[in-house]
């Protein structure tokens, strides 16, 4: 499903070159729930962004579902982000002026789904995250956990194969965090979505089938759990 071969991502910062990723080889199969842990600056987010098509490797190949992302154009990448992946961020990144429904429907706008149809899909998706009764609220009127559930609904609305969550519980209390991770786990199981979850909380990471430990842009260790 996801295959990374000798992926490097270099950044130039003044005179220094930083190896955000330094030769990553990784294979992920359909429906896996993977946690990526490691100290800050270890390359967790960069790895997620490259798999999500937001960033491109300096060298190496990234193949997702048979599509070579390292050679894709902006158009192809934007289509890939629109159809195949969903992003969940630590800071939610919801549009403050949009209602929950409009936020969830945003990816469908770029997929050229007509208004009536996308409101219908967005409403259904909000139902799966149990927020059907809050669809007219703006993010400012929602709690942190509710906001993150709206963000998850937005990531799900295009029925993606992969869901990428970068510290999704970083801004939530432990009880809400637990609920969010359980939601992600359920979605992965029910829909067969491949889930990649970046976190630095072991409690959260332990929900995954596989935990990848990163250090200095490399995979230090990978633990399978059943």
């Amino acid at each position: 499903m996801i295959e990374l071969r000798n992926v490097w991502r270099l950044y130039r910062m003044g005179d220094e070159t930083i190896n955000a990723l330094a030769g990553i080889d990784l294979e992920i199969s359909q429906g896996e729930f993977i946690s990526i842990v490691g100290p800050s600056g270890s390359g967790k987010s960069t790895l997620l962004n490259i798999i999500g098509g937001l960033d491109s490797p300096t060298t190496g190949t990234v193949v997702v579902d048979g599509q070579n992302l390292s050679k894709a154009s902006d158009r192809e990448l934007s289509l890939y982000r629109n159809k195949k992946v969903g992003f969940v961020f630590q800071t939610f990144n919801l549009q403050p002026t949009y209602t929950a429904l409009e936020n969830v429907a945003l990816p469908l706008v770029f997929a050229k789904v007509p208004l009536r149809k996308r409101n219908e899909i967005a409403r259904d998706t909000l139902e799966t995250v149990e927020l059907a009764e809050r669809l007219g609220h703006t993010p400012g009127q929602l709690s942190g956990g509710e906001r993150q559930r709206v963000a998850i609904a937005r990531a799900l609305v295009n029925d993606p194969r992969i869901l990428l969550a970068d510290e999704p519980t970083g801004n939530l209390d432990s009880r809400t965090s637990e609920l969010i991770v359980e939601l992600l786990q359920r979605l992965s199981k029910e829909r067969g979505i491949t889930m990649l979850l970046v976190t630095h909380e072991m409690m959260i990471a332990e929900h995954a089938n596989r935990v990848i430990h990163m250090l200095d842009g490399q995979i230090a260790r990978s633990t399978e759990r059943k």
Binding site: D74, R75, S78, N93, N158
Partner: peptide, 16 residues
Amino acid sequence: TREIGVMKAVGASQGT
């Protein structure tokens, strides 16, 4: 800026 970032993340191309 953030809004544009989100739009790109959910599928807006440079052309869009």
